[in-house]
Amino acid sequence: MSQATLIKCFAESLGIPAEQVTDELQYNTIPQWDSVAHMTLIAALEDAFEIMLDTDDIIDMSSVAKAKEILARYEVSF
């Protein structure tokens, strides 16, 4: 459930196909995942999982895998 939600957040926020949302996908390695899209992604994740991310975690969220690791600290399980 969380995995599907996470993929949906990434795909819709970055405007990319769901298949492209893999653990290896990294920030700033595709044109769609720039700083503006990153803040849109953060808002989507906060809404979807009903959390408020710390600023440090927003900065550290450098890949899909890292996003899962960070979200796990907010009691989101994958």
């Binding site: 803040m39 953060i42 808002a43 906060e46 809404d47 408020m52 600023t55």
Partner: peptide, 10 residues
């Protein structure tokens, strides 16, 4: 402003 902007942006 950092937090307010994030909440307002939504």
């Amino acid at each position: 402003s950092q937090y307010a902007a994030r909440i307002m942006a939504k």
